[in-house]
Design a protein around this nucleic acid. Structure first.
Length: 881
RNA sequence: GGGGCAUUAGUUCAGCGGGAGAGCGCUUGGUCGACAACCAAGAAGUCAUAGGUUCAAAUCCUAUAUGCCCCACCA
């Protein structure tokens, strides 16, 4: 390779050097800052804030790449784009990680005390925040860091307090003693959706409780025998003939010796088990309700850490599962427990810690969800509804909202927003407000913090200055345009943002919600730490570059579907980048001394020029439309094919004829087309692959500082030329046919021939004549004869294209039998096509009912196929003579 | 128990009313001034099954099968 040829770009695509400094360049140019420019229309997205504890995984990379792609396109389309970054304090998750670290040092949070512990977590937060920002940079995300937020920032904390207090004042937040999901390992309450139910092979324990003052017993069954220590009744159905006579009688609770009532309640299913149920109001939500209806005592038999308490009598201090074993043994010994059956059932586990969740009686804060949910459901019946993409997730969302249950929002943690409630030390009176009442020494603040999702739910507006409704950002960028997130957090986050936003801003927080799936490994397994099958996006970037990773993520699946990670596909994308790189090298090599101002498309355009410009138009239209619809896969693939199959494989190859020719004017036009098409293509590709496109664009003749702020391509009707596309199709058809023939007989001799093309009409002959140079070169033939009536040599191979038949005279090289066989196969093919199309056209229903253009297209096909069949038939007859 | 998604070439996936597509893999041939991580040519699919709607179904509807995922208080 000549040294002067590669002065622009190095000969090999090297993602590392390309991506190394580019992010800094963008940040320095402030291209990602929302300007507030009143001339521009605002467009806003808030990032789903990642947890500060973790490094970003592929799911984050996927999620944020989609946002970046939309944001970058909108920025290029002239919008004032705000993409707001930030992070989530992630209460349980973060506290658990830091506590685990402390444990390694032999310490617990109690050793440090609340304040010191929180300081430690803040240190962690800072460290991970830096990691995360670094990873965002590696991914090339166009975030406006001047507006970065953290859920525990002063402003956001203020918003959280404001919301809590307002909801309390409205009566939408209450405090009470209820059965909640308790995680004994982290010693905190959980909301319903933080509990994951898993099928577990358990046991079903059948017992007989003795009836007081009788020989009779009543059979009950349970999966959690240790809770019998807290039983305060046995319930039967009021209509159950078997037990009617026992209602009002008493049962003597084995081991405990407590006398408890037999009560009647509709809740009991007569068909299930024995039809009698033990009631433990302090350890089961249904039993709690039954307990309320019958005024039953609530006996709590466990401590917060899952050990038994003093109400458990001799089991006091035992772990709950140890106790289960012990109590089973004891009950068996007493003959009370008479059968243990295998039983698979659903057991709740903490989403975060994995511990078996205990239904537990405790005093917590709740949000009364019904009025808030009602409003969210109503919204979807109006024109202002949130548009879910894909739409089916709206059903998922609505179903949850319509069956909403109250939200337990207090958490017994230290890391989070402390609940703004104070209790009077003596009277126990409750005060809710940002500060303690005047006689503050008599009041104590609630020690609990709020569910992390309570603050995330305010994210779209708390990050923009709310509750200050005069804040410029809030006024300009809220509501946001689109939210991008996975289907796994529709309930946790999307739903809650919607109802909080409606309540406090009277608007939905976003117009569109783009929902994506989960990333899986190559075998379709969910990526997880425990399986060890996770792939670090930074490793992928290291190996193949952020552009390759991004393109893979964007084009790897359709909206809402899961995505399997395949290294081979990332590698294939790298190859695509290498292709773009080399095509660009070629273009640059031929643009010596060519400036942006030199781009001039007013000269005489060749057929390939006209064709590629038309195809560019169509590509612009297709890519713009599909990116707007979040169909990144469709848009990305279209660009891929345009670049590789059309621009590289055809246009560049044909451009060489002009570039290596003598005609200076023509050469200048070709350069213009090359520069223009590559420039426009890079712009479209930029939201998908920001690094490589910027790098090349900077080398190309260009106008402006950065492709990030270059104008998005527009369809240019001047260059729309459908005739050129048809002509080019014919030329390409001829070339492909010849290559096909050559594949069978390719020798140096076979090139020294005069190829002949017999056309159906003079028009076609003229058309081909105008492009004879391309045909000659690409067909690798010495000479070419074109005409409507030419002398066809006998010893020739032939092929048909629409409107023409071509011959390659190959005297002495042809195996006639093979050629006849080949043509017979060809004939068979056209025969089949003709039959198919004629069958369609002879169907009266089709002709009468199908749209005009469809019928017309079929007629055209019929004509074409008939012609081709005839040509092949004729040739065959000649050969057979 | 309720709901959703998937089923298309060896494989991973697009296409979602009018002629079955792509990447990878496979076969054959290629060192000619961007790229061998490339070029050219090619093989390969009763579009899960059965019905229905329609002039026309991979595409819409209804069942069935298989796999996956949500939701639900059955002790």
């Amino acid at each position: 390779m000549e040294a002067n040829n590669n002065k622009h770009l190095p000969p090999k695509y090297d993602h590392k050097s390309i991506e190394a400094d580019r992010y800094g360049f963008w940040l320095q140019g402030n291209y990602f800052e929302a300007t507030g420019d009143p001339e521009k229309e605002p467009f806003s997205i808030v990032i789903p804030p990642p947890n500060v504890t973790g490094r970003l995984h592929l799911g984050h990379a996927w999620d944020t790449t989609m946002q970046d792609t939309v944001a970058r396109m909108k920025r290029m389309q002239g919008y004032d784009v705000l993409w707001l970054p930030g992070m989530d304090h992630a209460g349980i998750a973060t506290q658990a990680v830091v506590e685990a670290k402390l444990k390694e040092e032999g310490k617990s949070r109690y050793d440090l005390g609340r304040e010191k512990f929180i300081d430690t977590v803040w240190d962690w937060k800072e460290e991970y925040a830096d990691f995360i920002r670094e990873q965002w940079g590696k991914l090339g995300l166009g975030l406006d860091y001047t507006r970065e937020r953290f859920t525990l920032d002063e402003g956001l904390s203020n918003a959280v307090q404001e919301v809590f207090i307002k909801l309390y004042e409205k009566g939408f937040i209450y405090r009470g003693e209820y059965i909640i999901n308790w995680d004994p390992s982290t010693k905190t309450a959980l909301s319903d959706i933080e509990v994951i139910y898993e099928e577990v092979e358990g046991k079903f324990y059948h017992m007989r409780y003795p009836i007081k003052g009788s020989e009779e017993t009543i059979e009950i069954a349970t999966t959690r025998p240790e809770t019998m220590l807290g039983d305060t009744a046995v319930a039967v159905h009021p209509e159950d003939e078997r037990y009617k006579h026992l209602i009002g009688e008493k049962v003597v609770l084995p081991i405990v010796g407590r006398e408890i009532d037999i009560v009647a309640d509709d809740y009991v299913d007569m068909e299930f088990g024995s039809g009698a149920v033990k009631i433990t109001p302090a350890h089961d939500p249904n039993d709690f309700d039954i307990g309320n209806r019958h005024n039953l005592e609530r006996v709590l038999v466990m401590n917060e850490d899952g050990t038994m308490n003093k109400n458990a009598g001799k089991y006091d201090g035992m772990d709950r599962f140890e106790c289960r074993k012990a109590i089973v043994a004891d009950l068996q010994a007493e003959g009370v427990l008479f059968e243990i059956e295998d039983h698979t059932h659903q057991v709740g586990h903490s989403e975060r810690s994995g511990a078996v969740v205990e239904p537990y009686l405790s005093t917590q804060w709740f949000v009364n969800m019904q009025p808030l949910a009602d409003r969210s459901v109503e919204l979807q019946k109006t024109d202002d509804k949130v548009n879910f993409v894909p739409n089916r997730f709206e059903q998922t969302y609505l179903h949850w909202m319509e069956n909403i249950r109250d939200w337990c929002i207090s958490r017994q943690l230290w890391w989070g927003h402390r609940i703004p409630a104070w209790y009077h030390k003596e009277t126990g009176e409750v005060y809710v407000g940002k500060e303690a009442p005047a006689d503050s020494e008599n009041w104590e603040q609630d020690t609990d913090v709020l569910d992390t999702w309570f603050s995330s739910a305010l994210w779209p507006f708390s990050t923009m200055g709310w509750p200050d409704e005069d804040n410029e950002d809030f006024k300009r960028y809220f509501p946001t345009d689109v939210l991008v997130t996975g289907y796994d957090i529709i309930f946790f986050w999307v739903a809650r943002m919607i109802f909080q936003s409606l309540e406090f801003t009277d608007e939905a927080p976003f117009k569109d919600v783009l929902i994506h799936g989960l990333i899986r490994d190559a075998d379709g397994q969910k990526m997880s730490k425990s399986l060890g099958n996770g792939v670090d996006p930074m490793d992928v970037i290291d190996k193949y570059g952020a552009d390759a990773l991004r393109y893979f993520l964007l084009t790897g699946s359709t909206p809402g579907q899961d995505l399997r990670f395949h290294w081979e596909r990332v590698e294939a994308t790298w190859n695509f980048n290498n292709k773009i790189w080399n095509a660009s090298r070629f273009v640059l090599m031929n643009l010596e001394g060519f400036e942006y101002e030199d781009i001039d498309l007013t000269g005489e355009l060749s057929l390939p020029d006209q064709w590629i410009l038309t195809r560019l138009n169509e590509t612009i239209e297709h890519v713009t439309q599909n990116t707007d619809k979040y169909e990144f896969g469709e848009a990305g693939r279209y660009l891929y094919n345009f670049i590789w199959d059309e621009f590289c494989d055809w246009y560049i190859e044909m451009a060489k004829i002009s570039l290596y020719g003598e005609d200076e004017a023509q050469k200048q036009t070709t350069r213009s087309v090359l520069a223009h098409v590559l420039d426009q293509t890079l712009r479209m590709l930029h939201p998908y692959m920001p690094f490589i496109t910027e790098e090349i664009w900077q080398q190309l003749p260009h106008e402006g500082e950065s492709i990030t702020v270059a104008a998005w391509p527009q369809v240019n009707p001047t260059y729309q030329n459908d005739t050129a596309v048809a002509e080019m199709d014919r030329v390409m058809g001829i070339i492909k046919s010849v290559r096909n023939i050559r594949a069978e007989v390719d020798t140096p001799m076979s090139r020294k021939v005069t190829m002949m093309i017999q056309t159906q009409t003079d028009t076609i002959a003229e058309e081909l004549e105008a492009n004879r140079l391309f045909i000659e070169r690409f067909c690798n033939t010495e000479a070419l004869t074109i005409g409507t009536n030419i002398d066809v040599p006998e010893e020739a191979m032939s092929a048909v294209v629409t409107g023409a038949e071509l011959f390659l005279p190959l005297a002495g090289l042809i195996d006639f039998e093979k050629e006849i066989a080949r043509l017979e196969k060809e004939l068979e093919k056209w025969e089949k096509e003709v039959n198919l199309v004629q069958k369609k056209l002879s169907n009266e229903g089709f002709v009468a009912k199908a749209p005009e253009n469809v019928v017309e297209a079929e007629r055209q096909k019929e004509k074409d196929y008939l012609e081709k069949r005839e040509m092949v038939e004729k040739r065959l007859a000649e050969l057979k003579k």
